[in-house]
């Protein structure tokens, strides 16, 4: 059986809100080490990979590996019933046909209990190679989100080019063109600083609709990490306490 408690429901609420526009059905793979999710969007262009290590929970117990097949829209409805500061407990039996969620306020004066019906999801599990990216960028989530939002008003796709000078986001649209150059911060200690590690300069073109969906994870972390190599999917990563939420997006490439 699974029993996993988070001190604050806000974490799971934010995670599920962040992925709900990217994927519809997900398997929560629960094991001794924590909860893992991998799901591909229906067009096979974007992939969500979530890791919640057992240490990130205030209580965690999982005797046997269980797969919980979850319809994301249904989980969103139930999580709306939790207050951000409530303690949240996930409970499931080994047969994995339902997930029980309890929400408890800090004074333990209110205990809410909801049951989510689970389903069998036939998801192909993809092998993501452990890649050393040619360029690694870490930048504040707000800055990344604003650029993605602004560029999406002009164009369907963005070109991200990275070299030692900085990272340049550019787009071409019917009304005109635009670009934003972000240079690496001189002081690393600054909050809101950008760091750029370039082994090989990289340039790739990506669909802005998906990137804007990924930006819904901006409430989960201060910074976003972009892992880029030529002509392979970009990794957009938000670090969590004891885990991560990663999105992968296949690039647009020449014939």
């Amino acid at each position: 059986m699974l029993e996993a408690k988070l001190n604050e429901a806000a974490l799971l609420k934010k995670i599920i809100d962040a992925i709900k526009d990217s994927v519809t059905d997900v398997n929560f793979e629960c094991s001794e080490t924590g909860i893992d999710v991998q799901a591909v969007d229906s067009s096979h262009i974007a992939l969500v990979s979530l890791k919640l290590g057992s240490d990130g929970f205030s209580d965690y117990r999982c005797d046997r590996n269980i797969t919980l097949g979850i319809k994301v829209a249904s989980l969103v409805k139930i999580l709306r019933c939790a207050n951000d500061r409530d303690a949240l407990t996930l409970m499931a039996d080994d047969n994995g046909d339902q997930l029980r969620l309890t929400f408890e306020d800090s004074k333990s004066e209110r205990v809410s209990e909801f049951v989510l019906k689970l389903m069998t999801i036939d998801q192909e599990h993809l092998g993501i190679p452990d890649t050393k990216y040619e360029s690694d960028i870490t930048m504040p989530v707000d800055a990344f989100q604003k650029i993605m939002r602004d560029m999406f008003m002009l164009s369907e796709s963005v070109k991200i080019s990275c070299d030692k000078e900085g990272v340049k986001f550019s787009c071409k649209g019917d009304v005109g063109d635009g670009s934003v150059l972000i240079k690496p911060s001189s002081s690393v200690d600054d909050e809101g600083s950008t760091t750029i590690a370039v082994e090989t300069p990289v340039s790739m073109e990506l669909n802005l609709k998906y990137l804007n969906n990924f930006c819904k994870a901006s409430g989960l972390a201060q910074n976003v990490h972009l892992g880029m190599s030529s002509e392979v999917p970009i990794m957009v990563e938000y670090l969590l306490p004891n885990g991560y939420l990663r999105f992968y997006l296949a690039p647009k490439i020449g014939d």
């Binding site: 262009i45 974007a46 993501i128 669909n207 999917p233 992968y248 647009k252 490439i253 014939d255």
Partner: peptide, 13 residues
């Protein structure tokens, strides 16, 4: 114009 690629051509099953 560049074409949208699929994840399936990068990540093995």
């Amino acid at each position: 114009a560049n074409k949208q690629s699929s994840l399936m051509s990068f990540f093995k099953k």
